[in-house]
């Protein structure tokens, strides 16, 4: 079956505005990933890992410097290609309130996609009501302005708007950032229901591992713009193949005072993309780094358990 979304060796460079210097600073390097029909894939990494850049590159909001984006098996290129992609794929932004045009009512905003793509919209008020009902909001919300919504409501409006043209893929950038625990649970349940009812595929970008465990079938871990591990969520959480993934899982605060960590899982900070470490880029923070890691960069290779990891010793950690 052809995946909904495929990224093939996608690279994004930040242009360096020099007069003589050409090229740029690599933000994303050779990222290959796919999202199948109805599948939910999580993209995980710290800030600076390039995950938001990746989402923007997919939607054509960020120029790519290499590789290809394929949607439904067809390469996306040019204005028409992205126009079609933007109809069949939708994006949810991290700051839901800020992503709603402030002077327009919710009713207009959720139906705007019909107007943009010149789709028939015989009864806008009714369509708005139906979309709001899908995400569990009362019809009266249609007359509100974005600044009058609570964080959870704005998030739901963002979902409703993303669903307007029945997309096949939703890219969600930190879908629960800034939400209270109880509201976060409501939003995650809603996303799960929609996936079941509408056959949506998700690409979820987040650093919240608890969320990932709940909603993702597969997880892709990014470090400094490269994929360092990829595999089914349950397997990755049970036995991470890359030490970075293991550190991220260990670093997550557990809501159980009896399971406090004694020591630190990971030290230091993500290095600046201006000074990428030589060899394996994670060796500066890796608790298991050896000499070879400082010299030779590992490739993204299949492990014995059939996952992908960018580590010289991937198979050894798992044992």
């Amino acid at each position: 079956m052809i995946p909904v979304l495929e990224l093939q060796n996608l690279s994004v460079d930040l242009p360096l505005g020099g007069f003589l210097t050409r090229g740029g600073l690599p933000i994303l390097q050779d990222v290959t990933l796919s999202v199948g029909r109805g599948e939910s894939v999580a993209l995980v990494g710290e800030s600076g890992s390039g995950k938001t850049t990746l989402a923007r590159a997919v939607m054509g909001l960020q120029a790519i410097s290499g590789g290809a984006v394929r949607f439904d098996g067809k390469a996306v290129a040019g204005r028409d290609g992205f126009a079609r992609l933007r109809r069949d794929a939708a994006m949810m932004f991290q700051d839901a309130t800020a992503s709603l045009s402030p002077r327009l009512t919710v009713g207009y905003l959720v139906t705007e996609a019909f107007r943009i793509h010149r789709q028939p919209l015989p009864d806008p008020a009714r369509t708005a009501r139906e979309l709001l009902a899908t995400v569990g909001l009362p019809p009266a919300i249609a007359h509100r302005y974005p600044h009058e919504l609570s964080g959870g409501q704005a998030r739901r409006v963002g979902v409703a708007r993303a669903l307007a043209l029945r997309p096949r893929l939703v890219i969600a950038d930190e879908p629960t950032a800034g939400l209270d625990v109880s509201v976060q649970a409501e939003v995650l349940n809603l996303m799960a229901d929609l996936r079941r009812d509408m056959g949506l595929a998700y690409l979820i970008i987040t650093h919240n591992l608890a969320v990932v465990r709940h909603v993702a079938d597969r997880i892709v871990v990014l470090y400094l713009g490269r994929v360092v591990e990829e595999g089914p969520t349950a397997e990755v959480f049970a036995a991470p193949a890359h030490p970075y993934t293991a550190s991220l899982i260990a670093a997550e605060p557990k809501p159980d005072p009896r399971k406090r960590r004694a020591d630190l899982a990971i030290r230091g900070e993500v290095p600046s993309i201006l000074r990428r470490p030589k060899g394996c880029e994670f060796h500066t923070r890796c608790p298991l780094a050896r000499d070879v890691c400082r010299l030779t960069a590992p490739d993204l290779r299949p492990t014995t358990s059939g996952r992908l990891a960018r580590c010289h010793f991937a198979d050894q950690h798992q044992e």
Binding site: V181, S182, Q184, A185, L188, N189, A192, A210, V211, R213, H214, T233, A234, E252, K254, P255, D256, P257, R258
Partner: peptide, 27 residues
């Protein structure tokens, strides 16, 4: 965390995705 007495504390602890078994699906 282990013996919450107030219904709100219980409800709040229950809906944290970090404590819910992922296999159970709904939060």
């Amino acid at each position: 965390f282990h013996d919450p007495q107030h219904p709100y504390t219980r409800a709040l602890l229950a809906c944290d995705p970090a404590v819910v078994d992922p296999a159970s699906g709904r939060l």
